[in-house]
Design a protein around this nucleic acid. Structure first.
Lengths: 215, 215
DNA sequence: CCTACCGATCGGTAGG
DNA sequence: CCTACCGATCGGTAGG
């Protein structure tokens, strides 16, 4: 009994009686998904990892879907930022278009948990990719740079929308295969390898977009 | 009490005391995923839908992952068959390559639950896409027709493998976006629309593959 | 943000 | 292929 009342020997559970529990919950969610896969994500396990009781998250998110929505929104914001970051360095329309696509794939490789939440089939309604022009409007960046490339004569004329869907499909497919580990047996495991493949792949697509297929 | 002992008024639960429970379990899994999403899939609910006790499935599958593996394998077999079916109608190398890609997308649209299980992040190990030349080797079909197109001079020379990854990414991305409903707001909802988009998209890619980007 | 509690569901097994 | 059972986990709420 002599030791009763002294500091507990295990103070290993950080507590969040301050303002950053929300952040801690988001981080815990991402770590959990990365380590155990999406199926392992539960509000209770997230709370556990964040060092709080399983009732605490409800102070910040009304339910599980709200937590995921917050993760997804953060992901779209980060992805859009990543795309802009690489695009502004470029000086040509097709350079920007290429950068746009490569950044999409890089984001997925660097933030697989975010990517899974953003595009996984977890929501009742598929996510809206952000208001036009907003800082989550990654699709808008693609459409914009594609239209610019059209005006510059580097991409065939015609309705921009279906062409944008082709571009999106290309990078989304590559990103998905990478995140799900399906290209590992083809030897693509590092970010550098993924970037090289993305560049090559998007270049092929841009080349295909340059002129009408009936040429 | 007069009615006691007579036929129960609800005989609505079909029983599988014959040989087709395995098939029924696979079908129930697919229906469940289609209707409620992948997250709703549990062995117990599958058993319920198949009209058996939750212990019955263990007679056919050692665990949940084994059930999913069976669904996935069936999916790869069906997808490969779908691709072959469309490819044999074609008389040119690039026709076969196009058919190969379009069939991939069509399969996903027609069998979204299969597609989700095949490529969803549900397995400890990502699925092997089948032994080379086997009836689940869809990737082999792609590589084969791509190599054929190269020999015919319709696709640039060089290592076939990375080019095949570009093709796979393209159709896999389109299929994924379609299955997850992300192209619905772009107005692509029917199989016919998806097929048209897939054709256009793969044509763009083939055009890009025709010659070196440095031409 | 915590304790204590609810009903529900789950994967899996024993034993027949 | 069924009944009966196990321990575990879950989402969510009451009440403080």
């Amino acid at each position: 009994m002599a030791t009763r009342g002294t500091r507990k020997k295990t103070a290993d559970k950080p507590r969040y009686h301050h303002g950053d529990l929300r952040r801690a919950l988001l981080d815990a969610s991402l770590a959990l998904i990365s380590e155990e896969g999406f199926g392992a994500l539960s509000l209770r396990e997230v709370a556990r990892r964040a060092g709080v009781t399983h009732a605490a998250p409800y102070r910040h998110f009304p339910d599980k879907e709200a937590l995921l929505a917050a993760v997804a929104e953060e992901g779209f914001r980060a992805m859009t930022a990543r795309m802009k970051e690489r695009m502004v360095r470029e000086t040509t329309p097709d350079g920007r278009l290429l950068a746009c696509g490569v950044a999409y794939v890089l984001f997925a490789m660097e933030h697989p948990a975010h990517f899974r939440v953003m595009f996984g089939p977890h929501f009742s309604h598929p996510p809206d990719l952000g208001e036009a022009g907003g800082d989550t409007d990654s699709f808008g960046l693609l459409v914009g740079s594609l239209a610019e490339a059209q005006r510059a004569g580097m991409v065939r004329e015609g309705d921009t929308q279906p062409l944008a869907l082709s571009c999106w499909s290309m990078v989304h497919g590559l990103a998905s295969l990478l995140v799900d580990g399906l290209l590992a047996r083809s030897g693509i495991t590092t970010v550098a390898q993924a970037e090289a493949l993305a560049e090559q792949t998007v270049r092929v697509l841009l080349h295909g977009l340059a002129r009408s297929t009936s040429d």
